[in-house]
Each structure stands twice: as C-alpha cells, then as structure tokens.
C-alpha cells in the first residue's frame, strides 16, 4: 500500500484507469433513479444482442428502504457502485479482476480472497445470473455475476458483470468504521469527508422516503409512467409486427401502417426504458412507505417486469433490424 490510503475519489479514478486500459467505455452515471448499476441501460440493454461491448461506470444506487437517516455507519439510502460489463468476458476475467484489486493498492499476498457462491436474480427485470460474492478479509467487496438472462431473453454471448461496493472498499482501505468518515478528497481546504458531501442526502431522503412521500401521488405517478411506457411498447409492436395472413373466408384486414426503416431506428425505446425505471423506483418508494399490501405486491412487481420485458424484446428487434 502507498503511504496514504486512497481517497474515495482516488479509488474511483484508479478503477477508471484500470478498466479504461481494458478497453472499457467509461460511461457516466445514469441520470434517472435506479436501485443498482445493473438497471442502467448501459447494462440492461447493452447485454442484449450479439454485439461485444465493454463499459465501466459509477452508478449512484438508490434503495429507499435501506435509508437510516444517516444514523447507521454501514447503511445508506444511496450508495455507489462501480459497475463493469464485459461482453463477452475474456477467459482471464477473474485474473483481470484480481489485477484491479492490486491497482487499488491491495497486496494479494497479504490478504485473504475468496470467491463464494452467490447467484443473482432480479424479478422486476426478469434477469438472473450465477456467480460469486468476492470476500476480502471477510468483507464482501464485489458481486461477480455471469448474466444468463435479461428481460426474459437468453444472453448470447453471455457477459460478466463486476459490481464493486465503493463505500465498503474505501472504508476498508482507509480503515474507518463509519462510511461517513471516509475521506473523499484531500486538498488545501483539508480533508473532505463522505459525511460532509452526503449526510444531508441521507437525512432528508430518509425522511421523505419513510414519512413524507405522498403515497397517493406516488401511485398516480406510477400509473402515468406505466401507461406511457406501455403505449410506446404497443406502438413499436404495432409498427413492426408482420401482418397476419387472413383466415379462410375472411376479408384481408388492412394492415397497420408499418414503420419505415428510419421510423423504426428512431423509435423512442430508450425513453420507454427510462419510464420503466421510473416505475421501478416508485415501486421501491411505495415499498419503503409501507404502502404496498400483501396482495398487491406480487402484482406490482409483475407490472414493472412486463415493462422491462416489453422494452427488452423491442430493443433486440430494433438492434437486429438496424444491423
């Protein structure tokens, strides 16, 4: 290790540098609320279809129910993930990952690393994969997943997803017991701590998520986003469906006007996906508010899942046609 452990942002910079050298597109965080880096279209949509892709990005991830008003030193409403997607993964993907740990100052000869089985499943995204949680001296620092399915579609090629828990790793490197004590940056102004940057977020959003969010409004928003997303998916399907041959003895029905190539390419599926993410976040908010009853819960998950699956299917179609 260097004399001073990495600051929070140096940690991010080192990872950026490492994965940039592996040919990853360094993306910026998605500007829509998501619960995990996986939900960013840079993962969810990019893993679909045959095109190879490598991307890395920080993703602030909001989980309303995990908020603790800034009082718990280990839990956050919004934590940051460093997300790497390798499609298709190289054969030395695990070795590459271990190299990335060296790059952030971890001497593998003086630490204990284990890959422990941990499979991943996201019912709202109709996605699953198998993999490990990577344990460093008893601390889970990364989720390592081989995606098998996304939006209900088998991935071919499959891809590897590495999700680093940035706060955990930084607290480990800096040997602090509270996330809020992580040094974010050192400068002429002295040390700026994580708490200084983020505590207000945690306090206020916890209050909003648990107490103030207007449940009736949330349901309304959800219905509105859902309807719009659905509408877009339906339009896409109508504009691209092959006309059905008329049944015997029936007059052939006039087919719906088909998209031209350019209409198809420009059709707003990315915005539709944003709308789907909005619904997912609203579901999480309603859940944190304790507003979803037992009987409703499964149904609401299914609603979000339908959107995700609908967008994923349309997206695959759009990509293949464009190719």
């Amino acid at each position: 290790m260097t004399s001073k452990p990495l600051t929070f942002q140096e940690l991010i910079l080192k990872l950026q540098e490492f994965w940039a050298a592996q040919g990853c597109v360094l993306q910026q965080p998605l500007d829509v609320e998501v619960g995990a880096g996986t939900m960013s279209p840079e993962t969810f949509l990019r893993v679909l279809g045959p095109k190879p892709y490598r991307v890395a990005y920080v993703q602030p991830s909001r989980r309303p129910a995990d908020g603790r008003y800034g009082e718990n030193p280990n839990r956050l409403y919004k934590h940051m993930q460093y997300q790497v997607i390798l499609k298709a993964p190289p054969v030395n993907v695990q070795e590459l990952y271990l190299e990335s740990l060296k790059a952030i100052g971890i001497d593998l000869l003086r630490h204990d690393i284990k890959f422990e089985e941990d499979n991943w499943e996201a019912p709202t995204l109709a996605a699953w994969g198998v993999g490990w949680q990577v344990m460093l001296d008893g601390l889970e620092i990364t989720q390592f997943t081989y995606f098998q399915q996304c939006g209900g579609i088998d991935l071919d090629p499959m891809c590897a997803e590495l999700t680093y828990g940035l706060e955990r790793i930084a607290a480990f490197l800096q040997d602090v017991d509270s996330i809020y004590d992580i040094v974010w940056v050192r400068g002429p102004q002295g040390e700026v701590k994580y708490g200084e940057v983020r505590l207000a977020d945690e306090e206020q959003f916890s209050t909003y998520n648990f107490e103030k969010a207007d449940v009736a409004k949330l349901w309304e928003h959800m219905a509105a986003y859902e309807a719009e997303c659905h509408g877009l998916i339906e339009q896409y399907v109508a504009g691209t469906a092959e006309p059905k041959p008329p049944k015997k003895g029936e007059e052939p029905k006039p087919a719906a006007p088909k998209f031209t190539a350019i209409e198809r390419r420009r059709f707003p599926l990315l915005p539709a996906y944003d709308l789907c993410l909005k619904c997912s976040h609203l579901f999480n908010l309603l859940d944190a508010r304790g507003a979803i009853s037992v009987t409703e819960r499964v149904g609401v998950i299914q609603r979000v899942r339908n959107l995700a699956v609908g967008v994923a299917r349309a997206w695959v179609d759009q990509q293949t046609q464009g190719a």
Partner: peptide, 21 residues
C-alpha cells in the same frame, strides 16, 4: 483463510476480519 501468509499478512487479515465483525 484461503491462503498462507506471513506474520504481517496475518495481522492485516486479522484486523480486516475484526473490523467487519
């Protein structure tokens, strides 16, 4: 552990595990 390390390494690993616990 899934490794055999030296005294310094053991101290580091111990410290890390104690911190997590």
């Amino acid at each position: 552990l899934n490794t055999v390390t030296d005294a310094e390494g053991e101290a580091i690993v111990r410290h890390g595990n104690e911190r997590v616990l």
